Computed example of a mutant assay.
Amino acid sequence: MRTRFTELFGVEHPVVQGGMQWVGRAPLVAAVANAGGLGFITALTQPTPEDLRAEIRRARELTDSPFGVNLTILPTITPPPYHEYRQVIIDEGVPFVETAGANPVDHLPHFHDAGIKVIHKCTSVRHGLKAQALGVDALSIDGFECAGHPGEDDVPGLILIPAAADAIEIPFIASGGFGDGRGLAAALALGAEGINMGTRFMATVESGIHQNVKDRLVAASERDTDLIFRQLRNTARVASNAISREVVEKLNAGAKFEDVRDLVAGKRGAVVYETGDLDHGIWSAGLVQALITDIPTCAELIGRIVRDAEEIITGRLAGIVRAA
Rank of each mutant, 00 (worst) to 15 (best):
G191D: 09
V11I: 15
A163I: 01
G286M: 07
E300L: 03
N234L: 13
I168M: 06
H210E: 10
R223I: 06
A131G: 05
R25M: 13
L232P: 00
T42W: 04
E300Y: 04
T6A: 08
A26F: 00
F40S: 04
V264T: 14
E206V: 02
A30C: 11
S284Q: 10
I305E: 02
L74A: 14
L278H: 08
A138W: 06
I209L: 15
E169W: 07
V155K: 06
V271N: 01
A100Q: 12
R233W: 09
L139D: 07
I312C: 09
D262K: 07
P150D: 12
V271Y: 10
V247G: 05
L184H: 02
K117E: 11
A323D: 14
L317R: 14
R86G: 03
T275I: 05
N212G: 05
P296Q: 13
E7D: 15
P156F: 13
R57F: 05
P66A: 03
N196T: 12
K250P: 00
V321N: 13
R200S: 04
P75W: 12
R182Q: 10
V97C: 00
L227P: 00
V260F: 04
I168P: 02
V213C: 03
I295Q: 06
G101V: 07
G135A: 07
I173W: 08
T72I: 12
R86V: 15
G151Q: 09
A239E: 02
V271S: 08
I302S: 09
R182L: 09
R322P: 00
Q17I: 00
R86P: 01
D277S: 05
L188W: 07
I209T: 04
V94C: 09
F229E: 03
V288E: 01
P49S: 08
K267G: 03
V23S: 02
E50G: 11
K117V: 04
R4T: 07
R60S: 12
P49I: 05
I41R: 03
S221G: 15
